[in-house]
Design a binder for these strands. Structure first.
Lengths: 154, 154
DNA sequence: CCAATATATATCGCGTGCGATATTATTGCA
DNA sequence: TGCAATAATATCGCACGCGATATATATTGG
């Protein structure tokens, strides 16, 4: 027995738990965004914009789909976001000569300089999370597993 | 020693872990939305709209701020969402006679009837999550703790 | 070599999600 | 009582996030 109905599917309570986990994820992320919004206000960056900058600070000169893959986002989302960062002078977008379909994204000096200003962000976030390192690591790894399942579903 | 610097703050690696947890949350939720989008397509509901319907199916005739509190959303987000559901004929919004500031939300017959169509949703989601019950419960409860911290941070 | 196919990015439309602000109703206090 | 403070909801503007679709370039098969 355990968690199976006679036909092998999950029980009714199990289904509720899954829905509860999803809502916990949803509502917790609202809180994450709230904390990042406050922390990023001095930089005038949104959380997704900050994620893009993190990618570029780690490795400059990547194409759009590289960023998409790393951040689990669609080009549909990234193209306008990148254009906004370009308009602010933080990065440049230019067609790649070797393959004119690709657009290479590179940091400007202003984009590189912003990294220094972003230094206190992780500390703000760590303090807001306020939970133990062990818990953070476990949670992170469980979420990675969940994410893999969700993106592979169908 | 352990996880403290001489000044008592978190170490550099700890900060990275917090950021990694936040990104895991962010990207996992993208997957959750993806799964719900597909499951909810026959109902023509978004995930937040579905959450509102769940609230109302559980307890009808609530005011806007009740829903806000339950879903961790601002009225700014809910008002337009509720107006869309009202326009679709799933619910009604009317000022409460006892306190004209409040707006009471009640399900229409169509709104109640939609519940039957929503019955297979939790199963779709449970299958997509594809992890053990124990893990789901643990994750859910850890996230609740995290959420409380995040919403209480400053 | 050239047409069919695949790939990379962009455009459009719509629904969140929230900060700043406005509006109306209620409450509290002098 | 009357007026300031508070509360509940709404409006506006902007940035995601993605499905559907378009466009341009590259690749592949005949």
């Amino acid at each position: 027995m355990k968690n199976e109905t006679p036909t092998g599917g999950p029980r009714r309570d199990d289904l509720k738990l899954s829905a509860q986990l999803c809502f916990a994820l949803y509502s917790t992320l609202l809180g994450v965004n709230k904390v990042y919004r406050k922390a990023l206000k001095p930089l005038d960056l949104t959380y997704p914009q900050y994620l893009v900058m993190l990618v570029l600070w780690e490795r400059d000169d990547v194409n759009v789909s590289d960023i998409c893959a790393q951040l689990y986002l669609e080009t549909t989302t990234l193209t306008p976001l990148l254009k906004r960062l370009e308009a602010r002078g933080l990065l440049q977008r230019q067609r790649y000569a070797g393959d004119e379909r690709q657009v290479r994204v590179t940091l400007t000096e202003a984009g590189k300089a912003l990294r220094a200003q972003a230094e206190p962000i992780p500390m703000c976030v760590a303090q807001a999370l306020g939970c133990s390192l062990d818990e953070i690591v476990t949670l992170r790894d469980q979420l990675k597993g969940l994410r893999a399942n969700l993106f592979n579903a169908d």
